[in-house]
Amino acid sequence: MNLHAIRAIYLFEMARTWRTLLQSIASPVISTSLYFVVFGSAIGSRMVEIDGISYGAFIIPGLIMLMLLNESISNASFGIYMPRFSGTIYEVLSAPVSYVEIVTGYVGAAASKSIILGLLILATARLFVDFHIAHPVWMVAFLVLTAVTFSLFGFIIGVWADGFEKLQIIPMMIVTPLTFLGGTFYSINMLPPVWQTITLFNPVVYLISGFRWSFYGVADVNVGLSLGMTVLFMVLCVGVIHWIFKTGYRLKN
């Protein structure tokens, strides 16, 4: 194991985060705060409780997930896309590193950054809404698992993309709609029966439901199923990355 290489990639990527601290940390925190102001405080006070939880508190897990997915994908995809775009990828490819080490470095840094962000948003939420976390260990577990899984997904997008617009298209066209329709702002029990069934095909439902369970002990779907779906998606991403490095797809001729 080339630990020096993992450390080098990880620190190099994290340095990018600290250098762009304002857009890395401040902008997601500010935009999430706006959600809390609008949906939590302003509108939330007029909403009925869902499953015995105030609306402001109800949306916290979903909003953290919304940010976590977007940030994980964009950090990881940008992290690997930039060296491909600038050409500095030659160095990584010519270094004595295995693909596991490359992925660990890039995905580890992207996931770390979004976990820090998730925790920051959680702390910010505390300023607006009163809540307590029922299963803190599971909460952290879901946070880490989701950050890693979607950073892996972002890594795939970063390898696949051959332009900046492609880098944006998957998060914008697929992930954001799925998150909004995945129960960030509502419980899927509030939907008509047909839509409840359709919604179950949305993988983000399982993430948000599981994460919300770790907060309040209530879930739309079984928590074991949530965990299983998340792990399944992670295994899928690992499989695709394995294939990428095996065939050299978009990395090596």
Partner: peptide, 16 residues
């Protein structure tokens, strides 16, 4: 955007 020092240090680490 990196400094000369950071990028050269990175290379050394990358090569183990």
């Amino acid at each position: 955007f990196e400094t000369v020092w950071a990028t050269v240090t990175f290379s050394r680490g990358l090569f183990g």
